[in-house]
Simulated assay, not measured.
Amino acid sequence: MTLAIIGGVLWLLGIVALAVGILPGDEALAVADRVWPILLFVVAVTIVAELASKAGLFDVVAARLARLARGRTMWLWVLVLALATVATAFLSLDTTAVLLTPVVVAMAVTRKLDPLPFAFVTVVLANTASLVLPVSNLTNLLASDALGGHDPIAFLTLLGPSALIAIAVSVAVLTSVFLRKLPRTYPDATAPAVADPVLLRVSAVVTVALLPLLVIGLEPWMPALAAAVVLIVVFAWRAPRALGIRLVPWSLLVFAGGLFLAVGALEAVGIGRVTSVLAGSGDDLVSLWQLAGVGALAANGINNLPAYLAMESVAGSPVRLAALLIGVNAGPIVTPWASLATLLWHDRLVAAGVRVRWSRFVLIGAVIAPLILVLAVLPLAAG
């Protein structure tokens, strides 16, 4: 609700800027033309993930991983790390934060393991692993648009080494902090009940088929929308009560739409002059560190999406744009409000009855973020 209220205020500010001529009409139309495919993808992939979750897909996958680890906590830890990384890369950071978090928490609780370490895996990797593909983060989709197309191979070529470093740093820190505190083994648990095996199988097939379709160069909204339509039709047949208006992430849509409009108005009045001074220029290592660092500070100060939008125009080159993404994707894990995924993650933990101290989140993020900013930028300068 808070997100929707903020979004509504941003919409009002943008409309006022449009009405008084601060934001020209043609620029507002250009913003809308750029934004609608991204927001359509967000809606479609959210519906796919929500319906797959309702079918029990994530619960079954988590249970299979626990069985595959054969009672050894270390291997379960590795498998959950891998699951969070894959979910983030292909289905976006919000899917990992919102849908995977309660699944891994329930999996840990039923096996008498502390759920908090596994919850930290989902929130940290939801942010830091979101550098992998264009569909992993809204900022990536915006950057892909600025780079001239949604080519996942080109995106991986540019950011793949940096993404690998971000994931490796996250895994190393999380493992050193949490794994030693967990017992070496855990008891087995009964498999989760599946209400409708048909829905489960269809959801699994659709989700597995969607993953490669998101990385073959199509506009991401196309396969995501097709997958959403298929699942909606099947659920209308098998479980119509699962369908509803709440499947659409309205709060996120209102917030993102208002944010795009408001930032467009700020750019029209010359915010780029301020950000260009802060972000500097040049493709050398120090300049890239400066850009990534300013992006991370802005993201932790306000939020990563407005931070990216405000600084995109001063990135200036593919390498600088990649440095900015490192800052606004992997950097916003220090303050709770820096990433929408983090706020959504906390809501899910509260609903699951798991307490997390924000001081602990800040401390872990303050270790991981600087390491990533320093190390993940190195491949950009070397290239």
Score class of each variant (00 low, 15 high):
R320W: 08
A292W: 03
L291R: 11
V286M: 11
L285T: 11
S313P: 05
V314D: 06
G272F: 09
M311S: 01
D283E: 15
A292K: 04
V274S: 09
T275V: 13
T275R: 05
R320C: 06
A296M: 11
S313W: 06
L325I: 09
D283R: 08
L305G: 00
A322Q: 03
L291W: 00
L325A: 10
Q290L: 15
L288T: 05
N303F: 00
A323R: 10
L325M: 14
M311R: 00
S313V: 09
L291D: 00
N300T: 04
V274R: 08
G295T: 10
Y308K: 06
G331M: 11
A299E: 00
V277P: 05
V286W: 12
A299G: 08
Q290K: 14
S317F: 10
A299V: 03
L288R: 00
G295H: 07
D283A: 12
G295I: 06
A298C: 07
D284L: 07
P306C: 03
S313Q: 14
L305I: 15
I271R: 00
M311Y: 00
L297T: 09
A310K: 02
A279G: 12
E312Y: 02
N329A: 12
A310N: 02
N329I: 08
G301W: 01
A292D: 07
A323W: 10
I271A: 09
G295W: 01
S317V: 10
L324Y: 13
V294S: 06
S313D: 11
Y308W: 11
N304A: 06
L325P: 03
S287Q: 10
